[in-house]
């Protein structure tokens, strides 16, 4: 019996399509809700601080918007891969992905790419919902795109690790609440790290999410706490390290093929 094949289809393409379709089918929960959350942050913080604070000569609300956009990109990229994997593992339907001839590279690429797409969709939504509140500039858009994609890919990879590692939803919640949330909230989304005491400034430089947000914000205003090239090097290095680690887990079949 002959197998009809079509080069347009394959493990990566289909898994990527399935992952995007999965979050799109529940867009009110996966897209609209985080956009609303970011909008509420903006309304509250800008109400309190606008007129009192300027950062690098930029009005506070304008400074805050890129930070909120990037935070949404990162958090949603993490949520996409991690929640999809844990749901599939707990319900058992992960077998549908493990039985076909999908390589570990395709598996990784599809989950991470879909996470990046969700991050970008939510980030774009946040940008559209918030840019009415302050005049924004797009000085170097290439940095915006580069850091959004790379940041999304890093958090997407972390989501794959968390989704594979966690056996229960509460383990995944712990990963999210005790690692992802502190890293994103303490990364300069709401402030410039130059305004922090020296100790916290130094500590912030060990947080890779700071470089993602700082580099991303540089694309809007052309001003940042660190050089965008340094941020690119740190973010790129983190991506390579995390991707290598995740691929190794998948290649060994850690918690998936045992």
């Amino acid at each position: 019996m002959s197998e009809r094949s079509d080069l347009r289809y394959g493990g990566f393409t289909t898994l990527f399509y399935k992952e995007v379709l999965r979050f799109w089918k529940v867009a009110s929960q996966t897209v609209a809700a985080p956009v609303l959350t970011a909008l509420l942050y903006l309304l509250i913080f800008s109400h309190v601080l606008e007129g009192h604070v300027q950062v690098h000569g930029v009005a506070y609300t304008a400074f805050l918007i890129p930070g909120l956009v990037m935070m949404s990109v990162l958090q949603n990229a993490f949520s996409n891969s991690s929640s999809s994997l844990i749901q599939s593992k707990v319900t058992g339907n992960i077998v549908f992905v493990l039985l076909p001839p999908i390589s570990y590279m395709e598996f990784f690429a599809a989950y991470v790419a879909a996470s990046v797409v969700r991050g970008l969709v939510v980030g774009t939504g946040v940008l559209f919902a918030t840019f009415w509140f302050a005049p924004l500039t797009f000085v170097e858009p290439i940095w915006i795109l580069v850091f959004a994609v790379m940041g999304g890919a890093i958090l997407g990879s972390l989501g794959v690790i968390a989704g594979i590692w966690a056996d229960k939803f509460d383990q995944l919640a712990a990963f999210q609440n005790f690692l992802i949330m502190p890293l994103t909230f303490l990364s300069g989304v709401f402030y410039s790290i130059n305004s922090l005491p020296p100790f916290w400034q130094k500590l912030s430089h060990w947080n890779p999410v700071f470089y993602m947000i700082d580099g991303f914000r540089h694309g809007f205003f052309g001003i940042s706490d660190a050089s965008p090239w340094l941020s690119l090097a740190v973010v790129g290095g983190c991506l390579v390290l995390l991707a290598t680690f995740t691929l190794n887990l998948l290649k060994r079949g850690y918690k998936l093929r045992n």
Partner: peptide
């Protein structure tokens, strides 16, 4: 393989599930 456990993906319809499964095996027009 027909697995023993009664597993399914709650996001999709029957036809979507089958088309996605075909795609995993590189089959488009199925």
């Amino acid at each position: 393989v027909v697995p023993q456990e009664l597993v399914f993906d709650p996001f999709f319809s029957v036809r979507e599930s089958l088309k996605i499964q075909s795609g995993y095996f590189g089959i488009g027009d199925n």
